[in-house]
Design a protein around this nucleic acid. Structure first.
Length: 808
DNA sequence: CGTAATGAAATTTTT
DNA sequence: TTTCATTACG
């Protein structure tokens, strides 16, 4: 038999062998979906489908990378296009930009850039939008775009005040983007969808080009994505989608469950394959999950089953308060780890909202449990990174007004709000971009002479940098850092935060260098920028670290852990108070819990607390309604919960206002005496404050190690070590400044030893500073600015007489 | 023009 | 409680 098919079950095999015609793979959690998809691609290639005709679309870069890697392992050397929806669209848009009114060097705005543009638009219109936040308006526009409603076609619902504001702002915002030759994330999809609709011949060409399309996580597609996929599958309806309606948790981002539920209507001759066998969880865990999700109406019936063991009962625990909850969990982990039953990385704690992580964090610290929080400040969202990238963006697309406004006074050049306002006014008047306006700052009457000169100086600097636009990215970036004074601004600062920022900028330099290595030749700035805003490095959850993982339910999708703690199952939190208004919202909350439960492989613990400190207030809580939807036979209830009816009764005794599910706790002395009761099934006593699990580091390091995306207690995460080193190097370099440096040893200096900002000595030109670097190994070049008046010169490092100036 | 101070608000966040 | 954004000062 074909070795590709051998490790597969009959159902999986059926899916893999289906090559032509539409295919719907309904894949339950832990059913080996990725394996099926990758094997199917390999099988198609084996059957003679040319790789260039295959397109696989995912939502996340992580998923795309994984799929690409696994296809590569199965079918080495075949280049199949595996990409996220957004990157795929971005690429197509480069080809067809003029058709939608853009230039091919268009900029992609991330969420905060878009927000800037939106704010400007609102200001400009001078409409009474005070009752709505830009955020609300942004959400509305995003919703419209996801539903293919353009600025021209947007119609507010009569009597809808927000709608009528959006009706005014949306066109202005869109005009602004177009004028800057920029798109937001939603536009990437919207433009391509429109393009395909309005240009039949383009559609036909692309349909022809991508004859075999696969879409992962199809339950998460929105109308725009649906339309694109559909448009590319008319002549060649070889469309295979995989997904699970029960795992759709991004409805609030525009995902439309109907896409997967009605797939069979869209493609009449579709083959439907159900992957219902679960290879991940115990029977009990799966049973709980299955029963819970049965309560949803909008779904497809599935018969989940597993050959795995029955496993231990799922624990359902009522805690006295959040601290008890957190401490008990920490203690349990400590016990298991000390007994050698588990390692820290086997555990995960999930919660509905990030704010709930705090109590857990504290407990983990107190008990000396190493942990990592997934999420945190994203690298590319940091101010310094955005600043520096904005320079590159402006070099790539000088029309980009958002980038212009970001960089014009960073570092401070004395060009403030007033000046900017005047430039803006001039630009609007003359129908020009801000950079064009700045270019003729002398002609702007309202501008003071002195200010006009400062602006002109900025433009001159920009023009100098422009000459480098086609050079390797690392080199451009290095020059930007030097010319703009950004490096000096951070380097000369005593501020610890600035030092950290500098380290981050160094990190970006490294990223640029790696990018250059991957893209030999010149003129790849645009691709670098695209990658920077479309690739999110947060994906890299460190499975390698032996730490307990703390994350939101949303973030847990796609992962699995031997032991899972699901905390704070309380009304108002899950289902979240803002998601109880409609049945659809409520069902999504239920799916969220379903996703969380099905991440657990061996042990699962569900818990809630009777009272919870939230937003500075301690509140009485009501157990989540979902708790009552799970079968008690499979569970071990440490403390018997009252049934929902009983609970409602008690509640009506205590409080007459039924509608208020949470009420502040009056200080009740009785409550305190009751508080010693350990709500857990009696596992162990707590050991508050005892550092049971010594990790070797003291109590310092409370919260400072925020640099990496994973905030960790105790030991500094390995990921930030190189940053620290870079920072040290940088500081060292600065401190050695000025002349009295010793002569370096005569031995050859390897090209890698040079870094940007480094002080060097040249036998003829004297002391200089490395401004930019590019290339690698024997090709590595440095641009050096000399103090002696020799100006800037470029050297091939391996042959150059440049020597580092040693710190004295 | 930059920073301190005050006040309102508070999910989830694949790109 | 914490975070943010706008506003009021120096």
């Amino acid at each position: 038999m074909n070795p590709l098919l051998e490790p597969l079950t009959p159902a999986q095999r059926e899916a893999v062998q289906h090559v032509d015609g539409p295919l719907l793979i309904l894949a339950g959690p832990g059913s080996g979906k990725t394996r099926v998809v990758t094997h199917r691609i390999a099988y198609m290639l084996e059957s003679g489908v040319p790789p260039s005709q295959i397109l696989a679309l995912t939502f996340t870069n992580k998923a795309a990378e994984e799929m690409r890697g696994r296809v590569h392992a199965l079918a080495p050397g075949r280049r199949v296009w595996v990409s996220t929806f957004h990157r795929f669209c971005a690429r197509l848009l480069r080809e067809y930009a003029p058709l939608v009114g853009l230039r091919e060097n268009y900029t992609i705005y991330d969420t905060s850039d878009s927000q800037q543009a939106l704010k400007r638009s609102i200001e400009e219109l001078q409409i009474d939008a005070t009752h709505y936040t830009p955020q609300q308006i942004a959400t509305s526009i995003s919703w419209a775009k996801n539903n293919l409603i353009t600025a021209e076609t947007y119609q507010p619902r009569p009597g809808h005040p927000l709608g009528s504001v959006v009706a005014k702002v949306y066109p202005a915002y869109q005009a602004r983007l177009l004028n800057s030759s920029a798109v937001d994330f939603d536009d990437l999809l919207l433009h391509i969808a429109s393009l395909l609709r309005e240009n039949p011949e383009v559609r036909h060409t692309l349909d022809e080009r991508f004859r075999y399309i696969l879409v992962d996580e199809y339950q998460d597609t929105n109308l725009a994505q649906y339309t694109i996929v559909r448009a590319l599958s008319l002549d060649h309806p070889n469309l295979a989608v995989t997904g699970d309606p029960d795992q759709s948790i991004y409805g609030w981002r525009g995902a439309n469950l109907s896409n997967i539920l009605e797939f069979e209507q869209d493609y009449p001759h579709v083959r439907v394959v159900r992957l219902e066998q679960n290879y991940r969880s115990t029977k009990r865990i799966l049973s709980i999950a299955a029963h819970l999700i049965e309560h949803n109406l909008r779904r497809k019936q599935k018969g989940l089953y597993t050959d795995n063991d029955e496993g231990r009962p799922v624990r359902l625990v009522t805690y006295f308060d959040q601290k008890t909850e957190a401490d008990t969990i920490a203690t349990r982990i400590v016990d298991d780890v000390r007994a050698g039953r588990r390692r820290p990385r086997d555990f995960a704690v999930f919660y509905r909202v990030n704010a709930l992580s705090r109590a857990i964090e504290t407990a983990m610290r107190e008990h000396g449990v190493p942990y990592q929080i997934v999420n945190g400040v994203e690298f590319y969202q940091r101010k310094e990174i955005k600043d520096v990238l904005a320079y590159l963006t402006l070099l790539n697309n000088p029309r980009d007004d958002v980038a212009f406004q970001r960089v014009i006074n960073t570092p401070a050049r004395g060009i403030g709000k007033t000046t900017l306002d005047r430039l803006r006014q001039h630009a609007t008047l003359k129908g020009k971009t801000l950079l064009e306006a700045a270019r003729e700052s002398g002609l702007v009457d309202s501008l003071a002479k002195k200010t006009a000169v400062v602006v002109a100086r900025f433009v001159a600097m920009f023009d100098r940098l422009s000459l480098l636009a086609a050079r390797p990215v690392e080199e451009i970036l290095g020059n930007v850092l030097a010319e703009t004074g950004y490096r000096d601004m951070l380097g000369t600062s005593e501020n610890v935060e600035d030092q950290e920022r500098l380290a981050n900028v160094e990190e970006l330099l490294t990223a640029a260098r790696e990018f250059d290595a991957r893209h030999p030749g010149n003129g790849h700035l645009e691709e670098f920028l695209e990658e920077s805003c479309l690739v999110n490095d947060t994906d890299a959850w460190e499975a390698a670290d032996d730490r307990v993982t703390l994350m939101t339910l949303h973030a847990s999708k796609g992962l699995e852990f031997p032991v899972v703690f699901l905390i704070a199952l309380e009304q108002g939190l899950i289902p979240h108070e803002r998601s109880t208004s409609s049945v659809d919202d409520l069902e999504e909350e239920r799916r969220l819990l379903f996703v969380g439960i099905t991440r657990a492989q061996e042990e699962l613990s569900l818990s809630h607390a009777r009272r919870r400190l939230f937003r500075g207030r301690e509140m009485m809580t009501v157990p989540s309604q979902f708790i009552f939807e799970m079968p008690r036979e499979e569970m071990d209830c440490g403390e018997i919960l009252p049934t929902k009816v009983e609970w409602d009764q008690t509640k009506s005794f205590d409080h007459d206002d039924e509608s208020e599910w949470q009420s502040e706790i009056a200080h009740d002395p009785d409550a305190t005496s009751e508080s010693d009761a350990n709500a857990d099934s009696g596992d162990d006593e707590f050991a508050f404050g005892a550092n049971l699990h010594a990790t070797g580091e003291g109590d310092e390091d409370r919260d400072s190690s925020q640099t990496g995306r994973a905030r960790s207690p105790g030991s500094t995460p390995a990921t930030i070590a190189p940053l620290a080193t870079a920072a040290e190097l940088a500081t060292a370099a600065e401190s050695t400044s000025e002349a009295r440096a010793n002569q370096p040893a005569a031995s050859t200096v390897p090209p890698e030893a040079f870094y940007q900002g480094m002080l060097v000595r040249h036998p003829a030109y004297g002391l200089g500073k490395v401004v930019a670097l590019s290339g690698s190994d024997s090709q590595r070049k440095a641009t050096v600015a000399f103090a002696s008046g020799a100006g800037q010169r470029s050297f091939v490092l391996q042959q150059s007489p440049l020597r580092p100036v040693k710190p004295s």
